[in-house]
């Protein structure tokens, strides 16, 4: 497993000290005991609307892909970015594969515990599409906005 971080549209291998992780449940039960924690793990069956607490103290929120097919964390990531304004790192853990990283990045993930063999290849996967049809959490202007821009320039 390698840790990759997204920066300006590319993935870079990252080396860091192990995070002080705490699960959402443990932290809610006793926040004082986990005052040193820097990373929060949230399971993918957790409703973010029910958390009702300040996430901004954590530098990393770790979301889970128990299997690549289980796509709940895509929605969780978008909600963290777009609804709850979380600006720290959102890290994908679990079954994180080359061909899903593009979707993850669009939903607001910027850290990846990548289980595939080739980090450079994962970075190439991010560049397979030049455009996006719909807005998401990555701030890429959707195709229709580009069309408007072009029409205005013409």
């Amino acid at each position: 497993m390698k840790l990759l971080k997204l920066s300006r549209g590319r993935l870079f291998p990252a080396f860091e000290e192990p995070l002080a992780e705490v699960s959402l449940d443990a932290w809610r039960d006793n926040p004082q005991e986990h005052a040193e924690a820097t990373a929060l793990t949230i399971s993918n069956d957790t409703s973010l609307a029910d958390i009702k607490c300040d996430l901004h103290g954590f530098s990393v929120i770790i979301l889970d892909f128990p299997a690549f097919k289980d796509g709940r964390a895509y929605s969780q990531a978008r909600l963290l970015r777009e609804r709850y304004g979380y600006t720290g790192e959102i890290r994908a853990r679990g079954d994180v594969l080359r061909d899903q990283i593009f979707f993850m990045a669009r939903c607001g993930f910027n850290g990846f515990e990548f289980s595939g063999p080739d980090a450079d290849d994962a970075s190439a996967a991010l560049e397979e599409f030049s455009f996006a049809y719909q807005p998401a959490a990555d701030g890429i202007a959707p195709v229709w906005r580009k069309r408007l821009g072009r029409a205005a320039a013409a």
Binding site: G71, Y74, Q100, F103, M104, R106, C107, A132, Y133
Partner: peptide, 13 residues
């Protein structure tokens, strides 16, 4: 069709 094409959130429903 356009909105749903490669929708990043809804490709692993």
């Amino acid at each position: 069709r356009q909105w749903s094409t490669f929708h990043p959130e809804f490709s692993f429903l």
